[in-house]
Design a protein around this nucleic acid. Sequence first.
DNA 1: CTGAAAGCGCTTACAG
DNA 2: CTGAAAGCGCTTACAG
Lengths: 330, 330
Amino acid sequence: MTTINDIAKMANVSRTTVSRALNNNGYVSEDVRKRIMKIVEDTGYMPSVSAQSLRTKRSGVIGIILPKISTETSSRVVKGINEVVSKEGFQILLTDTELDKRKEVEYIRLLQSRQVDGIILLATNVNEGLLNVIKDVKVPFISLGQELPNVTSVVYDDYHAACDMTNLFIQRGHDKIAFIGVGEEDPAVGQTRKQAYMDTLKKNGLQVKDEWIHEGGDFSIESGYESMKQILKKSEGNPPTATFVVTDRMAIGAMEYLKEQGYRIPDDMAISGIGAAVMSAYITPSLTTIDYNNKEAGRLTAQLMLDKLNNKKVSEKSTLSYRLISRDSV
Amino acid sequence: MTTINDIAKMANVSRTTVSRALNNNGYVSEDVRKRIMKIVEDTGYMPSVSAQSLRTKRSGVIGIILPKISTETSSRVVKGINEVVSKEGFQILLTDTELDKRKEVEYIRLLQSRQVDGIILLATNVNEGLLNVIKDVKVPFISLGQELPNVTSVVYDDYHAACDMTNLFIQRGHDKIAFIGVGEEDPAVGQTRKQAYMDTLKKNGLQVKDEWIHEGGDFSIESGYESMKQILKKSEGNPPTATFVVTDRMAIGAMEYLKEQGYRIPDDMAISGIGAAVMSAYITPSLTTIDYNNKEAGRLTAQLMLDKLNNKKVSEKSTLSYRLISRDSV
DNA sequence: CTGAAAGCGCTTACAG
DNA sequence: CTGAAAGCGCTTACAG
């Protein structure tokens, strides 16, 4: 492999000078610079990142911890982040917890040993252990999607989004509105969205019935299917006429069950999701949902990360806007 | 930061011994080993990967070059790869070309400068420049999804899959079968699948009409929509009764156009895709497609990579099997 | 404008 | 069983 020493010899200068020419830092005569650059070009020389990183304590890598690598949300966020950081010469190192809490902690450690310059976490749950580990992280750290205490957080406006969606049902004349959620370990999705739903019902003098509320076991389509089934079973005799589901995938599962049972959507049951999955536009009927603009969230998070890396002050909490997409399912 | 020297001091041994204890290589008395491990535990020490990598020329990282990070195919493949390599302590470094040919070359270089131990490329196009750069790669290299000359390749059985799909239409009584493809720069998708379609038609004595063939500009839903529109326009008076689309997303776009125009699927037009996108199962009517089992492809590729890293011989070409999923659109 | 020297944190022959 | 020393490929004060 070509090293900086090889280049130095070929150019008849010291490696110090080569380094300066390469990094545009310190004086190098135009003559020498050209000679060096020509050789670099010809040989296709690329500095060893390990050596640079060992020496400078900077790796040019941002670590990202994803709950699941193969979801649209993750993909969009990563894309947004990449768009911003790649322009500044940063690489991204992706890790996937597969929704395993222990892996979150493990990866935070691992990423640090890999000398990443910063860490972005897309958490799906919040617990004491996680918070403790984060406290000891020595590089810039940002949470995306969940608000963590004393951690720079970029969050979606889950509360108002869910209020708006619930209100949409009410405006359309529904007063029996069911809810399909997820567990409370996920504050953003499991708690905030549910709270907004309940608050909005109460504010409108509507009853919140336990039979109309169900939490899916996970975020899967199947889980939505199963939840809808449970709600219909529990509420026999007094079924809801609308169901607010906290994610598109689960909503699609719920629709699937309704279709199987011969329900017409939205006539017999109106339904909505959150997330603006591509699928939501192509399913029949098309799904009313909320677009969180994940890519923009990724961009913003990346920008905050760059700011932190440049020792700029950044606000501890950024809340993103959203867009309600009204389609045929409501 | 804690370094190996700190640990050595705390344990009253040399860093040589600490290194040996950590890597389980060479003799260390049980006594000393325990003492060291305890301290490592307590301090949460993790060796600097940069230093290790600089010293050993191994980084424990496999670089992956993706055409697009936010597609189901990519996600599944990555998942499969990750599953296998993470067990052996390897990390994955993901790069995204965003379908830009120059970036493929750029990333191959970049990954090498990052001292990755191996590179996996999911190519969408093959050209001389790319081949030349690959020739000079000094680490194990595998191509997934495209067969590259003199490069270890893991490929899908595009030819037979496309034959099977075309035959399915024929079995259902269609003799006017259209084709929506992509450009020829992508040999697997743009050439092989098309060739299989044409061969199958000919073998069955059916005519291959230019008006029934259209190439989309990219892999998008919109591109499928537009292609269907073009075919219907060009073939007015003698329209096809079935359309074989080379990807699910494009097929969904094509369906969208057909629905808008009042076509009943499959009665007025049968349609099929390839890829087994999640969406394909939930769209109405559900889409007949081919499951390439991308995750398994990822796993196999990863295994081959590990074999290469262990200097085992691996076969230059592996062809994966597939599964035709017959649903309601045909 | 340029170079010699130190040092980043490791691993690995080599010697004992 | 253990340690001193060299060296991986860089960058950065320091000196000239």
